[in-house]
């Protein structure tokens, strides 16, 4: 297992290098101009000076190598310094990846936004799982019952209706008409006591529900399908023949075996938590990573887009590995040696 893990990790390095090059080249080829959003009244020669000051005068390979150095050497060193509080070399001289729009280090922006994304999108993932598993179990156990039919219908709706629609519908119902929940996420709120905690819960309800519906719809179908596969197996008949209670058969024997593929699906979905829910974060104005990415794309803030997309790529590669390893741990039949 250890051997396998190391082999996979070694293989990840060239993969990531190729990914970073492709992202950089794609962004460079895209017809994007960081001065495109400026008012028409700024003259063309000033625009050219602005582009030069952003470093666009350098040729493509040089800019790519600069970025590699900044991302793989300078930024990790800065993070280490920040965590342990000592200075490695001349840190003031070290070039950092800077966003073109804010002129501040990209990594600082990401660190500032990480918690909100983890809270809101992560919470919606947890809520989605908590809804999906029981719904999937009951749907499979009572296949074609009214519960299964309704469950199928709701998950179809949840899966096929886009979040930018459900989000706005929920805002119109719960914020505009009923006035129960705020439609805008107050990112300056600090949880210090019960009332601010309650405010935090209220402002999380709508975005979390929108995303949870989507996640639950997807996952519950997996749980249901996997349960159905197992319910017809011989070992289930054997367990029943041994006189085990139906509850034990279902929740211990069948569920445990059915969860193996589900766990993999969940693990593979974790990177999407980090990339944030771009549209949902934008609708509710949650200052997460997804919103950061969309603002960066709109403003042609290429260093920020490049760094964020690359971090997402790293996470996807990493969680693919985790999912493969989990599979081996959960299912003793699978051996990687």
């Amino acid at each position: 297992m250890l051997n396998y893990t190391l082999r996979r990790l070694m293989f990840a390095i060239p993969t990531l290098l190729v990914i970073s090059f492709i992202i950089f080249a794609l962004l460079d080829l895209a017809p994007n101009d960081p001065t495109g959003n400026l008012p028409l009244t700024i003259p063309p020669d000033v625009r050219e000076q602005i582009r030069q000051s952003l470093g666009l005068g350098e040729p493509f390979p040089i800019r790519y190598l600069y970025w590699l150095q900044q991302f793989f050497i300078n930024e990790p060193l800065n993070l280490l310094e920040r965590m342990f509080g000592f200075e490695i070399g001349n840190s003031a001289e070290r070039l950092r990846i800077r966003s073109w729009a804010t002129r501040s280090p990209v990594v600082d922006l990401i660190i500032e936004r990480m918690p909100q994304t983890l809270w809101v999108v992560g919470m919606s993932y947890v809520v989605g799982i908590l809804i999906a598993i029981p719904v999937g179990i009951i749907s499979a156990y009572r296949q074609y019952s009214w519960f299964d039919q309704i469950g199928t219908f709701v998950s179809m709706v949840g899966f096929s209706v886009p979040t930018f629609f459900t989000g706005v519908v929920l805002i119109v119902i719960f914020s505009v008409n009923l006035q129960w929940f705020p439609s805008i996420y107050d990112t300056t709120l600090k949880v210090t006591d019960w009332s601010s905690f309650w405010a935090q819960v209220r402002q999380m309800v709508l975005p979390v529900m929108v995303l949870a519906l989507y996640n639950a719809a997807q996952l519950s179908r997996f749980v249901r399908a996997s349960m159905l596969d197992n319910l017809n197996q011989d070992y289930v008949r054997t367990a029943r023949a041994k006189g085990m209670k139906e509850r034990v058969v279902l929740l211990i024997h069948v569920l445990r075996n059915s969860l193996i593929p589900v766990v993999t699906v969940i693990a593979l979905g974790i990177p999407t938590i980090f990339s944030g829910a771009i549209i949902t974060e934008q609708i509710f104005r949650v200052n997460g990573l997804g919103q950061l990415l969309i603002i960066a794309i709109q403003g042609a803030d290429i260093p920020l887009v490049q760094t964020l997309t690359f971090i997402f790529a790293v996470l996807i590669v990493f969680f693919n590995l985790i999912a493969d390893l989990l599979y081996g741990i959960l299912d003793p039949r699978i051996r990687y040696e």
Binding site: V168, I171, V176, P182, S183, I184, T187, Q282, I283, R285
Partner: peptide
């Protein structure tokens, strides 16, 4: 408090309909 993000229509809603801003 100067908040950003979203789109023009929902910004209008937050002042004209929900009164949050």
């Amino acid at each position: 408090t100067l908040k950003g993000g979203g789109d023009a229509a929902s910004a209008a809603r937050s002042v004209l309909e929900t009164g949050e801003f």
